[in-house]
Amino acid sequence: MMKRILVTGASGQIGTELVSMLRNNYGKDNIVASDIKPSKDSKIVNSGPFEIIDVTDGRKIGEVVKKYKADTIIHLASLLSAVAEGNPTLAWTINMGGLFNVLEVARENKCVVFTPSSIAAFGPSTPQDHTPQDTIQRPTTMYGVTKVSGEILCDYYHKKYGVDTRGVRYPGLISHAALPGGGTTDYAVHIYYDAIKNKKFECNIQKGTYMDMMYMPDALDAIVKLMEADPSKLKHRNAFNITAMQFDPEGIYNEIKKHVPNFQMEYKVDPVKQAIAESWPNSLDASCAKEEWGFNPKYDLSSMTKDMLDKLNKKLK
């Protein structure tokens, strides 16, 4: 049971919404948001404690954990896939160095740790359809390499030191609250904004490229559900396949056109992002998450599209 929680990378796409939800659930003073620089989101800064943390500085993480007597660290700080491919050295330093520091602090202070993995942990030799929970993981991107390494490192800390580590392999995440930060699946967020603002969209992923996706409310619920789960029921821990829907750019485009009939889309494929997307699975098997801790997403493409357009219409007016 989480009581006092430190969230790293709190200004990112997941963190922005997660901090608000956790403060509603656990009390605003019990959720410490942190990031490498002050958040531009006044809601995060003004609704509870906020600390500046560079996750490559393990001493600072430890100071904040002790200061607030945190029992849980939700570690979200990382460089995402496309950005990481542009600077692999920095990606390794932040993604792996930061996680190592968090795990060391957790070991010393007996904290529970959640850190997200990703579909990027898989690669071209992974079974592409209904990808099993336990399968070949040979990614071809630095981001993917850090995610596989992170899963193994978290397993090591659990087995070697008894640190309660948990995680999920996130698909592409779609949110109306915060823009994504340089991932391969970002097109599936920007398409909604452009449908409302411009009535046209230039897609950087090729038609027929299927990827797993999830709406942010389901992604946030998954964190809380997994972290509140009975640890004796968890066989996998780091990290569970989860998914809610699979589509290619034409699928999301056609769904949006039901609500915005004059919406147009053309393709201008980004070769780097396309290569990354093609190395990932088409669909994941999430049966272990369902069996071990009751994962059950609420949104599909149709219900997500309706909600996204409703929320963005209000936001962008």
Rank of each mutant, 00 (worst) to 15 (best):
A195W: 05
D194A: 14
Y187S: 15
Y170P: 00
H176C: 05
K197A: 08
G182C: 09
D194E: 13
L179H: 10
A178R: 15
V168Q: 12
A188V: 04
P180S: 11
D186Q: 11
G181I: 03
V189A: 08
L173Y: 04
Y187K: 13
G167N: 09
N198G: 06
A188F: 00
L173V: 11
P180M: 12
G167K: 11
G183D: 02
A188S: 07
A195Q: 04
H176N: 06
K197C: 06
G181N: 05
T184G: 08
K197T: 09
T185M: 07
H176T: 06
I191S: 10
G182V: 07
L179R: 11
T184R: 13
D186V: 14
Y192E: 00
T185I: 06
R169W: 01
Y187D: 15
G172C: 03
I174E: 01
Y170A: 00
I174G: 00
N198W: 11
Y193S: 01
P171M: 09
L179D: 10
P180L: 11
G167W: 04
D194W: 12
G182M: 04
A177P: 00
K200S: 14
P180T: 11
K197E: 09
N198P: 04
A178F: 05
Y170S: 03
G182E: 05
R169L: 03
A178V: 08
S175L: 04
I196L: 10
N198R: 14
D186F: 10
P171G: 07
G182H: 00
V189N: 02
V168C: 15
I196S: 07
T184N: 07
H176G: 03
Y192S: 05
A195V: 02
R169Q: 06
G181K: 02
P171N: 08
L179I: 12
S175C: 03
A177Q: 09
Y192C: 07
G172L: 04
D194Y: 12
D186E: 14
T185R: 06
I196C: 04
G181T: 04
H176W: 12
